[in-house]
């Protein structure tokens, strides 16, 4: 693995290697001293063209716990809004000696351009690009699911070596604009899970029928029919209501009634089903407080796992998978 640009690029073996390495990293995080020396002397640049405090802090924490030096480059206002071009920013970072670039960008494909245009020679990690991909989010979601759904027995609590074969995952919300949904569909399919997307038809992309998943417009029927092991609620941006053509749905209340995870739907879920959300949440819109705060909610755990997943990704990209054993 040279870069991490898309969850679709990961083979089953690569994905499991990352999840297993994540388990190793997570285990170190309950120690008193959380810091590992693995990336000492290396510099990781967080190049964020889009506001995202949580993801940036998560990557920053991950890099620092591996003893890397971290440079945060907040370049809000890219060439899209007539600032410095992505190319010049990349050349500047390369000249300053970055060893890896973590990039968040509002333009789909920007990490791909950065990795393939010759502007930088370092590994590139996609921390979310436009409506395209957010692979570390999918990995942390998969890690969280594996822990809850495939953990136990000889594989240990983290389900080491296992995939998600047969797990039934329902993803609800704004699939059209969601890089989280795209990444999750790709990775969960690779890991053998059965995914169902649920959304109003306006929030599904044309072409979704070719994705390796089922699609439904009816959340109640899906909960009843699929009996999910995990349900993931996607963030719905309120401004989607007021965009061109009168918006994608008539009102937040109607959205919430038809697609929100309220108390009734929460109660209808199988007992073991975990409730997930990539954050930040709109409480009362796509998810009720009751669901978000319920014991089956993994939302806070997802954040913790995010740091471990990003540690694993940076470690595998910069220190190389072959050294995994030695560093333990």
């Amino acid at each position: 693995m040279r870069h991490l640009l898309s969850a679709a690029d990961l083979s089953r073996a690569e994905a499991i290697e990352i999840l297993d390495t994540t388990a190793t990293m997570a285990a170190t995080q309950s120690r008193e001293i959380k810091k590992l020396p693995a990336l000492r002397g290396l510099t990781v640049v967080n190049l964020f063209f889009e506001d995202s405090t949580r993801t940036r802090i998560s990557f920053e924490a991950a890099a620092k716990r591996l003893s890397a030096d971290v440079i945060n480059f907040s370049a809000k206002g890219s060439s899209v809004s007539k600032g410095e071009s992505l190319k010049d920013t990349a050349l500047t970072l390369a000249a300053m000696g970055a060893d890896a670039v973590v990039i968040r960008h509002q333009a789909s494909g920007a990490p791909h351009r950065l990795a393939t245009s010759g502007w930088v020679r370092t590994p590139v990690v996609n921390a979310g690009d436009g409506m395209h991909q957010h692979p570390t989010q999918a990995l942390l979601d998969a890690f969280t699911m594996r822990r809850h759904l495939a953990g136990g027995g000889e594989a240990g609590p983290d389900g080491i070596g296992r995939d998600l074969a047969g797990a039934k995952v329902v993803i609800v919300g704004d699939v059209l604009h969601s890089r989280v949904a795209r990444s999750n569909v790709d990775l969960l399919h690779t890991l053998g899970a059965d995914v169902t997307l649920v959304a109003p038809p306006t929030l599904l992309p044309v072409g979704v029928h070719t994705w390796p998943c089922a699609v439904s417009y009816d959340l109640n029927a899906t909960i009843a029919d699929v009996r999910p092991d995990a349900i993931m609620m996607l963030r719905v941006q309120r401004e989607r209501m007021s965009s061109a053509g009168g918006g994608f749905f008539p009102s937040p209340m109607e959205y919430s009634r038809r697609y929100g995870l309220d108390g009734t739907r929460l109660a209808a879920l199988p007992e073991h089903c975990v409730v997930m959300h990539p954050g930040p949440m709109n409480r009362g819109l796509e998810i009720s407080a009751k669901a978000a705060d319920s014991p089956r909610s993994t939302i806070v755990e997802q954040v913790a796992n995010g740091v471990a997943v990003r540690m694993a990704v940076l470690y595998l990209l910069l220190a190389g998978g072959t050294e995994t054993e030695g560093s333990r």
């Binding site: 679709a8 789909s108 494909g109 690009d129 436009g130 409506m131 395209h132 991909q133 890089r179 795209r182 992309p205 044309v206 072409g207 979704v208 070719t210 994705w211 061109a244 053509g245």
Partner: peptide, 22 residues
């Protein structure tokens, strides 16, 4: 024009995957 606001590529299977406005 209204059907193509912010459009970057043909809307279809490939745009859905690439996350580019169709």
């Amino acid at each position: 024009p209204r059907l193509t606001q912010g459009a970057l590529m043909h809307e279809g299977v490939v745009s859905a995957e690439l996350g580019l406005t169709g």
